[in-house]
Nucleic acid binder design. Structure first.
Lengths: 143, 143
DNA sequence: AAAATAATATGATAAAAATCATTTTGGGCT
DNA sequence: AGCCCAAAATGATTTTTATCATATTATTTT
């Protein structure tokens, strides 16, 4: 469904959303361990996310990664778009050039609606929304 | 969403469902071209499908691949299970061991239902169903 | 200004997926 | 029986994804 990298990225962002703030930055080594992802790997992913404005960071002593208001309000789909590429979730399920809503391939025909729904949900839910569901106890970690 | 291999496999099976029968077998080279997949590659995939009873074949002169009644009535999901592995579509979207229906991870919580729906559709629709949709003109190729 | 710290950039290695090529086996034909 | 055809089996290569390691740059503290 999603790539390993995307899963890692989501876990990291979720962790930051729950445990960081402008005044409470967290270093890679303190992220990689709790979310169970190799440090060098998650570092690289985080950098991409920072570049795209989904995560914030400052370097030097007392530096680290964190989520500010703006970051927290980004939609979940942005992470997937950045890490896996935008088309991953939208292009034809048989990779047919000519497949579209009007002339769908057989697979598109039967599971187009489900896919649309996934897209919708990912476009509507922001990162805080997920974090909040954990805080409220409707969703669970550990990462 | 699906792996390249799965897409290829579905295309091949669909092609066979539309163009073959017990009395009209078709050779790999005559499949690979129309579905636009390298011959050696699709040959390998077809062999796996034959082994699992989703496709039929006979070798020697006048031999080739084909779909019989039984093959045509297999559900689409079987192809995915065989090529990508059963868990690909069912396991946690964050790869968390402890994620399940009762204690879902945040992602599971928001797009579990969509996924369930995809599973349902793939479990209900058989290969002929897809072929039929093409014959009736509600779905379209070319592959 | 220098030293220490932590992200950033770059790139090397490893593992998995996709692609390609060769040999072997079984079934029909003469 | 021997020959030919086409799938089956095996495995080599290439590409992509995942993982790891090192050097560089920015910031803070002394």
């Amino acid at each position: 469904m999603f790539s390993n990298s995307s899963k890692y990225a989501i876990k990291a962002v979720l962790y930051l959303s729950l445990h960081s703030s402008e005044s409470r930055k967290v270093m890679v080594k303190d992220i990689s361990n709790p979310i169970n992802v190799p440090q060098a790997y998650i570092a690289k992913l985080l950098q991409e996310l920072v570049k795209e404005g989904v995560v914030s960071s400052t370097r030097g002593p007392k530096g680290g990664f964190f989520m500010n208001e703006h970051n927290n309000n980004e939609k979940v789909i942005r992470i997937l778009d950045i890490i896996d590429g935008e088309k991953k979730l939208t292009n034809c399920m048989l990779s047919l050039e000519s497949c579209n809503e009007d002339k769908p391939c057989p697979l598109h025909a039967i599971l187009g609606p489900s896919r649309q729904n996934i897209l919708k949900v990912l476009n509507e839910n922001s990162i805080v929304d997920l974090a909040l569901s954990v805080r409220k106890g409707t969703a669970f970690l550990p990462l």
